[in-house]
């Protein structure tokens, strides 16, 4: 279980995460949603102790991440597919990670099999496509057979086959009673694999509700998301027409 309470992160005058409170309960896939720059990744980095909160707390199974006696066996983390040295083979990367917790070679081979990386395990990670990098990241997260998984955009760059596989994987992990926190921009994907969604914008909580409830109220999860984040989008593209109007000096 992941518990985030009044979590705040400031970088100088910029507040990336602002008093965020939510819980990702066990046996559930919790979707984590928000526009670019909303503070999703910052929140995840604080949960796993890479960044220190300015105030507030984040705990896994009631403990601060830094106080976990065997982090890999408690929390599986995939934050970024580029969290690997490009000069190291996938096998050696996982082997080195496993050795920090005394996890044997058999389990390394097992997660390589689970993620379908057998054929490329001997290749250097720098030669991997984004999708293969994602699989390697997921393999690393599964290594310690953890009760909690934190996956940042796991389906990014995966082929349809891979997307389907991740969907089945996270559903299966939650069905075993594990906690899964998963961020994604793909609304249809979350509608299919998440039980609950936590929506944030500009570092603040906008919604924390079951997927069905949100989707029913607004027609679809996508509509619900767009309505919730309407005032919290940091970066918005404009149509050609809008750009032309802006150039001639006309206000909206």
């Amino acid at each position: 279980m992941i518990q985030v309470e009044a979590l705040t992160k400031r970088y100088g005058s910029v507040t990336a995460v602002d008093g965020l409170t939510f819980t990702a309960p066990p046996g559930t896939v919790t979707g984590f949603l928000g526009p670019n720059g909303a503070g999703k990744s910052t929140t995840m980095r604080m949960v796993v102790g890479l960044e220190r909160p300015t105030s507030g707390t984040a705990t896994v199974d009631g403990r601060r991440y830094a106080d976990l006696p065997a982090p890999l066996r408690t929390v599986g983390v995939m934050l970024d597919a580029r969290s690997v040295h490009p000069g190291r083979t996938a096998f050696r990367h996982l082997r080195a990670l496993a050795r920090t917790h005394g996890i044997g070679r058999a389990r390394v081979d097992e997660v390589i099999g689970m993620t379908g990386l057998e054929k490329v395990a001997g290749r250097r990670a720098g030669t991997f496509s984004l999708g293969m990098g994602q699989r390697l990241g997921i393999a690393g997260a599964l290594l310690g057979d953890p009760g909690t998984l934190i996956l940042d955009e796991p389906v990014n760059g995966l082929d349809p086959d891979g997307v389907l596989w991740v969907r089945g994987l996270v559903r299966g992990l939650a069905a075993e009673g594990r906690t899964v926190l998963l961020s994604s921009h793909l609304m249809h994907e979350l509608a299919l694999c998440a039980d609950r969604v936590v929506v944030i914008g500009r570092g603040r909580l906008l919604a924390d509700a079951p997927v069905q409830e949100l989707a029913e109220d607004a027609g679809s999860l996508e509509d619900a998301y767009l309505r919730l984040t309407a005032g919290a989008v940091e970066y918005r593209g404009r149509t050609a027409e809008e750009t032309g109007r802006a150039a001639t000096g006309g206000a909206r």
């Binding site: 991440y65 983390v77 934050l79 580029r82 969290s83 040295h85 190291r88 990367h93 920090t100 690393g140």
Partner: peptide, 15 residues
């Protein structure tokens, strides 16, 4: 570790 992003994996395993 730092120049490649591998530090994320490493320091998550060894907080």
């Amino acid at each position: 570790e730092h120049s490649t992003g591998a530090f994320r994996t490493t320091f998550v395993a060894v907080p």
